[in-house]
Design a protein around this nucleic acid. Structure first.
Lengths: 149, 149
DNA sequence: CTTGAAAATCGCTTTAC
DNA sequence: GTAAAGCGATTTTCAAG
């Protein structure tokens, strides 16, 4: 993966629907060559896919939270993770070390909905303790940081 | 935004480079109609863009952490956020309520690099306290959850 | 529906090892 | 001598008026 591949990745991070011709113009290669490189990056697993990025607020989810979660004794992690998939307000989840077992990223319409999510996590998913904080804003960071040294 | 728009969004969440013909096949509309709808979703701000999704491990960043951060008294938040952009290991950042000021998402190659990031945050960015936990894994969640009720 | 643009495929050339 | 990158020509597919 050379410098040109990195440039292509940066361009595709900003516009995943860019045409090969446009990409070629930017890196001064033919569209064919660019297409070959991009296909190689895909089959090598460097590019995992292309996703539309949506505006969460268009769906009324104005309230975001980070919730640290501890499971009750004996609750199966696998089952918990699977059931998380059925809770649409959970937009992200990671298992972590430390005081808590998981950190959840929630997106709710309002506190009413947040309340029902809390109750559901405790009643149905085996959550013992939940410690949440409101997300005030996300800090905008450059997309190409993953590529840099 | 009707049911078909939601279907289109779901399809584009999974493959942001899908052609209008392919989308049309899935929702049983002509490519033209689909293109019109997608363009409208873009100009309405529902679709914010299209991004390639990269495999972080291809770049050697095998170690991820969540770090809660508290700033020293008098440190300017704006300046802090701007300087975060210069630290490539910071792949995500949110300002939050509660005991800490920010939560950072870090991606490092190894503990050596993590150590230098800690020192840099404290020495250059005005961080007073840092509380980190290792990310063991991300829980895979369906992409279309943002769209659902 | 039509037209110009873009993508995929093929084969050829050049370069590096 | 082989492998890989680049490019041009052609056919098929796609986008947009």
């Amino acid at each position: 993966m050379d410098r040109i591949d990195r440039e292509l990745l940066t361009l595709l991070l900003h516009d995943g629907r860019a045409t090969y011709q446009e990409l070629g113009r930017q890196v001064r290669l033919s569209a064919n060559t660019v297409a070959d490189r991009v296909r190689r990056l895909q089959t090598d697993g460097v590019i995992r896919g292309y996703r539309a990025e949506l505006n969460l607020e268009s769906f009324g989810r104005a309230m975001q939270l980070l919730s640290d979660v501890r499971l009750r004794e004996g609750v199966d992690r696998r089952g918990f993770e699977e059931q998380l998939g059925a809770v649409p307000q959970v937009v992200g989840a990671m298992r972590v070390t430390g005081e808590y077992d998981y950190q959840l990223h929630l997106a709710c319409t309002d506190t009413r909905e947040f309340e029902t999510v809390i109750d559901r996590l405790k009643a149905e998913l085996g959550v013992r303790e939940l410690r949440s904080r409101l997300v005030l804003h996300e800090v905008p960071l450059g997309l190409e940081r993953a590529i840099e040294p």
